[in-house]
Simulated scan of single mutants.
Amino acid sequence: MGAALRPSLPVRWSFPRRWLSLLSGAAVTTGLFLILGPAPFLDGLARITPTCLVVAGLIAIVSTVAAAWRWAVIARALGLQLGLSTAVLACYRSQLLNTILPGGVLGDVHRGLSHGQSQHNRARGLQAVFWERTSGQVVQLGLAVLALLVLPSPLRRWWVLVALGVAVLAMVVVLTALRRRTDPSGFRWWPAVLFGSSIAVIGHVATFLLAARTAGVQRPWFELVPLAMLVLVAMAIPANVAGWGAREGAAASVFAAAGLPAAAGVATATVYGVMVAVAALPGAAVLLTGIARRPEPERATAPETEPAADRERVREEVSVRG
């Protein structure tokens, strides 16, 4: 395959932000070690079985396909060609890179650049990934509010609902403002994105519930779902070291607020982290073979005409919103 279709892994992530993410994730993990000791981490690792990893991998297939379909719908709305099979392979690759690289977003930046370069429009490729990730976060926040309102939970407190509601409103305002500047499709893809995002979130929650059961947490599923939703929201914060940090800190805090041992939250997050890492392993084959980099069989879009400043702005948006 020609050199033009082999983009290097993007490193346009500012030095202070990269180190802030790494230091934040390391600080949270170190703090948990100092407060709770290594026992919750080791207990979670000891409870992992091949069966739970296989089940988590099967759930991940559904979630990955749903997210890939969401991305393909948005990419096509923005005038790019993207088949579902290529999108699925690229999503597996980006999941692996997000898992092993700091910040949790570089895999998605690479996904946008790679697809955009194959379509001769890198800025639009990054734009599609930015909309895909941001719209998914909006749906996830909305579902978190719904779960807290509908399901019985000790976390159903006014300040939690207000905080999540404000977050949803802020995300909607940002999306609306950015649409006027960058999105020519007029959000016609929202019904499909809502469906695909809901399936993906259900898959993530199911994996979290499986992790909780594996870690020995014996609470009804309807009590654990709101906890899972809040931890998933916190996981979007790019403050981690290879995925570790914000997830475990959020799980410890949320479990403690719900009257459960913080150690149980850390053990659950540890199991979840291993499940996600193993489920992303197919991305290694994609990364090594480069099969997701082949150009789409359909007609490619015209060469990019966006000025360099626009490309830089969209790249920065994807990096920040991941």
Rank of each mutant, 00 (worst) to 15 (best):
G2E: 12
A3L: 07
A3G: 09
L5Y: 07
P10H: 13
R18V: 03
L22T: 02
L23D: 04
S24T: 12
V28Q: 08
T30A: 15
L32M: 05
P38V: 03
P40Y: 05
F41R: 10
D43F: 02
T49M: 05
P50C: 09
L58S: 06
S63M: 11
A67D: 12
R70V: 00
A75I: 06
A75F: 06
L78M: 01
L82F: 10
T86A: 13
A90W: 00
R93D: 05
L96S: 05
T99V: 08
G104H: 03
G107M: 01
L113K: 11
G125S: 07
V129M: 11
F130E: 02
R133H: 06
V138E: 04
G142C: 11
L148Y: 06
R157C: 02
L161W: 10
V168Y: 03
A170W: 14
A170M: 14
M171Q: 15
A177R: 15
T182E: 12
T182V: 14
D183P: 01
F195Y: 12
F195R: 10
G196T: 04
I199C: 13
V201E: 07
V205C: 03
A206L: 14
L209E: 06
A215I: 00
V217P: 10
E223C: 07
L224E: 06
L227H: 12
A228M: 03
L230A: 07
V233A: 13
A251W: 03
F255Y: 05
A262D: 04
A264S: 14
A267H: 06
V271N: 10
Y272F: 15
M275N: 07
A279G: 05
G283F: 00
L288V: 08
I291R: 15
I291K: 14
A302V: 05
P307D: 15
A309P: 01
E312I: 08
R315F: 06
E317A: 15
V320S: 09
